[in-house]
């Protein structure tokens, strides 16, 4: 089973991410859970496109012509940039919430709202 280690890591990371998102009350920790989940997706995409013995799909002085699949890597790049953008937005919202309510605990924020 060791040759499937990336996919098993993906499952473990997905489980950790979903549990963190569902059970934690702090907004910053929820954001960390979302980031772990996103890392799991990125690892899944990259390991899905791996070909045995392949090199990176760049032809500049490449050691061999056997290359891994380029499309999952390009889409992983897209996913990383979108993750950075959403993380910045969520952190800004957390700062605004802390300024308004004095806490980042979602239960207390909901109670204050009434």
């Amino acid at each position: 089973m060791l040759w499937n280690l990336p996919f098993i890591t993906v499952v473990v990371l997905t489980f950790i991410g979903i549990v963190t998102v569902l059970l934690k009350k702090n907004i910053i920790k929820i954001l960390l859970g979302i980031n772990i989940l996103e890392s799991a997706v990125n690892l899944f995409l990259v390991s899905l496109g791996y070909r045995e013995g392949g090199v990176a799909p760049i032809f500049t002085l490449a050691p061999s012509e056997l290359m891994v699949l380029p499309t999952p890597q390009a889409l992983t790049l897209t996913s990383i940039v979108i993750g950075v953008a959403t993380s910045a937005l969520v952190l800004s919202f957390a700062m605004v919430l802390y300024k308004k309510y004095g806490t980042v605990d979602i239960d207390k924020i909901r109670r204050l709202q009434g």
């Binding site: 089973m1 040759w3 499937n4 280690l5 990336p6 996919f7 098993i8 993906v10 499952v11 390991s47 899905l48 496109g49 791996y50 070909r51 045995e52 699949l69 380029p70 499309t71």
Partner: peptide, 15 residues
């Protein structure tokens, strides 16, 4: 995950 095989993608025509 155990049914996937790491290092041998199934459909590679487009790539």
């Amino acid at each position: 995950a155990l049914t996937f095989t790491f290092g041998a993608p199934k459909m590679t025509d487009m790539d």
